[in-house]
Design a protein around this nucleic acid. Sequence first.
DNA 1: AGTGCCGGGCA
DNA 2: TGCCCGGCACT
Length: 505
Amino acid sequence: MHSRRLAKRSILGSRVCAPSVAGEEAFLPGVVQSVKQENVEASTGPRRNVYTVLMQDGSLREYTEDEIVVSPPQMAARGPLKSSLKQGSCNGRDVPDPAVPVEGQKVEENTLAPEPAKDLRGCDFKRTGRALDPEKDRIRSASLLEQKRKVVSSSIDVPQARKSEEEEEVDMDKVTAAMVLTSLSTSPLVRSPPVKGSEGLNGSWKDGGVTPSSHSSSGYWSWSAPSDQSNPSTPSAPLCADSFKPFRAAGGPGQADDLIDEPDGSSLLFDEPIPRKRKNSMKVMFKCLWKNCGKVLSSSAGIQKHIRTTHLGRNCDSECSDGEEDFYYTEIKLNTDSVAEGLGSLSPSAPLPALTLPPASEAGQPNGGSGAKSESKLATPLSRSAPSALYLIHTDHAYQATAPVTIPSSTSFTPNHSGTVSVSWQSPPVSFTGNSASPTHSLTQSFGEHRPAACTVLSSPPRTTGLLRKSRGEGKKCRKVYGMENRDMWCTACRWKKACQRFVD
DNA sequence: AGTGCCGGGCA
DNA sequence: TGCCCGGCACT
């Protein structure tokens, strides 16, 4: 401790004034070159310092501390160096330790006190100096601090326990910068355009903290119905999602991705690093990014066709596609383990039409029934409504005996005994057979055993009686003509409650 | 409710 | 086979 303090107080290199000739009053300027101690009285007597001073004239002389004074430029007040040095220990406890080697002092000076002369100002010096030239002292203090800072920063041995506020700030800045860099390097959002924070979904696909997109629906990640995307031609990245998609907090990634995985790192939608999943648990799906759509199909062809026909208004096949539809859908991977849930959550939120397989997607198959059957197991729940709709349509047509689908490739004309011709449409194949309805009925009035050929009904059983009855004749009948009172006048058929043979329509 | 007519039973 | 009728569908 003493050595350090002593060193700081070293006057080596200090400008001093010393008598040109010992004992004279004339002082000449010089620079202290070295200090040595000598004991005046061997063991008990006080030891004194002897300073080697390089005088202005180039001569080296030795002076005791009593003989030299600090040079005027540094010391406004002249005085014995000794007093100055001794008073350098402002607290009085710090008496220069004679035992400290001069060399040690030099070393200390070189590293810690580049300008030892300034340090010569002890507490008293500071007081006096300040009193005499406060401004100069202030500047020196500032300079000293600066120098000390430099020295400390360059020294390996500088204790780290205590740092200046500036240093702490610097460290904090470093830490902050490191954190920022870390988050930037790990956050997917940095690379994907911010989209709207939507349904939390979306983030879902949607989500937690920061939402994935600013104007797109999350729909993407959350499977919820897509919100509106302002520009259909430029579907915004969802982001949902996950999007959307939330600015993943630390430890976040992975959890939110359990449901959906993005295989393509280039995708704007699912860009963040995702824990690898077992391949067999992933199902690739294709999601339409069109505004207010969000339809999800299991095949790229299907989604392309959907986009082409539904959004681009092109009814042509893929051959005439220019590939534009590729911009409006994205490929997503679903964890099949949770597909059911995903679909379940999807159904309620997404518009039904968007989830069903419209005829357009099965354009090649006029027969809706078969198309529905061909639907993949996964897509079935999504397209459940389509087949039923078709079914109803067909049954309805059948009921009206004009089944379009089964339009008669051939019509049969059946002459009956009354000379009229009955026309019946024989529907192709299928499972049901029965009398054709109105067409026949209006043309003929068949009696007894002979009935027109049956018309096929696709799915709904015609009537409870099984066979379709001929439509009621519009013309007059015996009952009407003769009335109940004249039943005797009726034709036999009418009496027998059979088709009137007398008044045939 | 009235009417047309099919299907079935019976003689 | 003829007669009769229950019952259904349609108007």
